[in-house]
């Protein structure tokens, strides 16, 4: 008996999106980074092609964050005191790109300023030649105020800018259009909302090749199953030929996992939760792996050890790459 493995025939594929620009392309990055392009479900290479590997980003901040887990502070050490140093450390840890989040305030609680954001981004661009994403602190007005000057400062670098949400995307999309960048389109765990925002952004004139879709995820134990299934449905729709679901997907297991008690807290928790560091690292890595299998094309992580572990899984799934 010879069994034929049942293969699916898909009519669509995920769109390829390229971040970063080299000197030839009007930027200063050493190389570009392309994600997406697959014509099959995650890692089923027996029935389709997967031309690009998912990108692993490490998150850095424009200043040392006040609320990160001590385990993360330990991992990054003094590098966190300077965004340039932090970016270098992230590059050394094996990141494919730097995902930089601008802070809402400075260390004294005063509002962050466009001048500071601009300078911090400049520092990172000078410190590493990796492609880069820059997103605001997540409050509409302040996001816009900070991201516009950043877009200008990094003219032509093809940064990924964010975060575009339904309530607030126009200013950021306009900045991306004006200065040759890409955008992160984020919607709350819903297939139709994901599509709609891509359409709205596209309607402003931004090519689909410059939109990365963030369907939002929950951490392990905190709603991951919702994001997981929304991603699977989006991916099946994309392969089925639904144009506006074909954007590569970005998810942020680092932020989600490190926010929850299991990762964040070492004391006063049940004994059976086990060793804190191991639990925290597993929380981030297991969240990430579940999302790898639901179709993530870019994963934003926080701990360098998680990046190493997820990388080795991807190396096996896709064959290792030098």
């Amino acid at each position: 008996m010879t069994i034929e493995i049942p293969k699916e025939k898909y009519t669509g594929a995920v769109r390829e999106v390229t971040l970063g620009a080299t000197a030839d392309e009007g930027g200063t990055r050493a190389h570009t980074l392309t994600i997406g392009g697959e014509s099959t479900l995650p890692y089923l290479q027996f029935e389709g092609t997967i031309p690009n590997r998912p990108a692993l980003a490490l998150e850095i901040r424009d200043r040392k964050p006040d609320d990160w887990s001590p385990l993360l502070l330990q991992a990054w050490g003094e590098a966190m005191d300077d965004p340039g140093e932090w970016a270098k450390a992230a590059e050394a840890a094996g990141a494919d790109l730097i995902y930089m989040v601008l802070s809402l305030t400075d260390a004294d609680g005063e509002p962050n300023t466009p001048e500071y954001a601009r300078a911090a981004v400049r520092k990172v661009l000078d410190a590493t030649s990796l492609p880069m994403a820059v997103v605001g602190p997540g409050q509409a007005e302040i996001d816009n105020e900070l991201i516009v000057p950043v877009a200008e400062e990094a003219e032509g670098e093809r940064l990924l800018l964010g975060i575009c949400e339904e309530k607030n995307y126009r200013t950021i999309v306009a900045a991306a259009l004006a200065h040759n960048h890409l955008v992160q389109s984020k919607t709350p765990m819903d297939v139709n909302l994901s599509k709609q925002l891509v359409i709205l952004i596209h309607d402003m004139g931004l090519p689909l090749e410059r939109i990365v879709m963030d369907p939002t995820t929950g951490a392990l134990g905190y709603g991951i199953e919702y994001g997981y299934s929304v991603m699977e449905r989006l991916r099946l729709a994309a392969l089925g030929g639904d144009q506006m679901t074909q954007q590569p997907m970005l998810v942020n297991p680092g932020e989600e996992a490190w926010r929850v008690k299991e990762a964040k807290v070492g004391e006063g928790v049940p004994e059976n939760w086990g060793d804190w560091e191991r639990r925290a690292l597993d929380w981030e890595a297991v969240t990430a792996i579940a999302l790898v299998h639901s179709g993530a094309n870019m994963l934003v992580l926080r701990h360098p050890e998680t990046l190493r572990r997820v990388r080795s899984v991807l190396d096996d799934l896709l064959g290792s790459q030098s």
Binding site: R278, V286, D316
Partner: peptide
């Protein structure tokens, strides 16, 4: 292979009985 991460894959993708080599409370919880 990273046992926890392969077990996680198998939980998502079609595992039935999963036999672990290591008993570690933290990983088992996840």
């Amino acid at each position: 292979v990273d046992e926890t991460l392969l077990a996680a894959e198998q939980i998502a993708k079609y595992g039935g009985l999963i036999v672990l080599e290591e008993f570690n409370p933290a990983s088992l919880y996840a």
